[in-house]
Design a protein around this nucleic acid. Sequence first.
DNA 1: GCTCAATAGTTGACAAGATAACCATATATG
DNA 2: CATATATGGTTATCTTGTCAACTATTGAGC
Lengths: 168, 168
Amino acid sequence: MMHEEDGPLAATDLGFEPITPHTGTAFGLLRLSAMLSDELDRELQASAGIGLSEMLVLIQLMLAGGRAKMAELATTLVVTRGGVTKIVDRLVDGGLVERVPSTSDRRVIYAEVTERAKATVREYQPLFDEIARRRLAELLDAGEMTELAGLIDRLNCENPGWEPPLAR
Amino acid sequence: MMHEEDGPLAATDLGFEPITPHTGTAFGLLRLSAMLSDELDRELQASAGIGLSEMLVLIQLMLAGGRAKMAELATTLVVTRGGVTKIVDRLVDGGLVERVPSTSDRRVIYAEVTERAKATVREYQPLFDEIARRRLAELLDAGEMTELAGLIDRLNCENPGWEPPLAR
DNA sequence: GCTCAATAGTTGACAAGATAACCATATATG
DNA sequence: CATATATGGTTATCTTGTCAACTATTGAGC
């Protein structure tokens, strides 16, 4: 019935008017990222049986040539060292990653992909890509998508590299 | 000393080469968002004593004219209904929000900002904005920033509205 | 060489949300 | 009008990642 006591809503119903210049953009960025994460995690979990965090580690490992130090993963994935330990724990349990101690620096441990992991990435990266396409590329024209990709890359490169505060 | 057993790294050291077209962009978007969230949450927690989630609810409430249904908050903030309940619980505990039952639909509860909340937003939104500026606007020229803002807004509007899967 | 600070990784306790079941209310269907 | 279905909110339980403390190793300064 909708008796419309429902006061001063509607005014900005979609809710994207920025209160101050950049707040709205940040707000939108976070929202977009949240939707994307949610869908990626859900689809990967359903198909590949691993979460988004695990997939991101695998992708990053592939990008790095198959192995990377735990601390590097923490920095590039914007997760604490403790967090990486746990994600890698799960990957090791699933037979997707092995821990390989460095011989040159005995503090360091490499996370290294297994053959199984390579197969997993080969198999499910298209899904990842397809979701990204649906949520991003499909809604923009080719030029805009290139623009967006460029801006995001620039921001990632030019931002002061993330490090867990207080060198935690 | 760096004995350089440290194999096939370096090749793509920054780690941003996309494996397939859109994966890299999604990867970058998630990373950017993670850095931004981390900094926003940390700074807000330190200054305002509330987390990013609470601030986002307050901002959304202000945008909606001071009040919004719990379910609306869930959708726009990309959080489950259960999640919103808890965030609003904390805001109520802090005296920033009140729960106001709707009279026209007795299932509905409005979250409504208090005067204290308005003051909090007035006081700390500049901080929010400043961080967004540092992480985004400062690294691009004015035209690029406008471009980015436009693309993000478009993607948020044109994306199929987020809803918790299976009407959870 | 020895001490002190910095770095790498792990661990246990905790905090924030997701999930799914639940109750209450509202709407649609016969 | 009666029943069935959908919607709105909360709750208890579980998962994930942070935080802070701890150990081990490395590198710097004396």
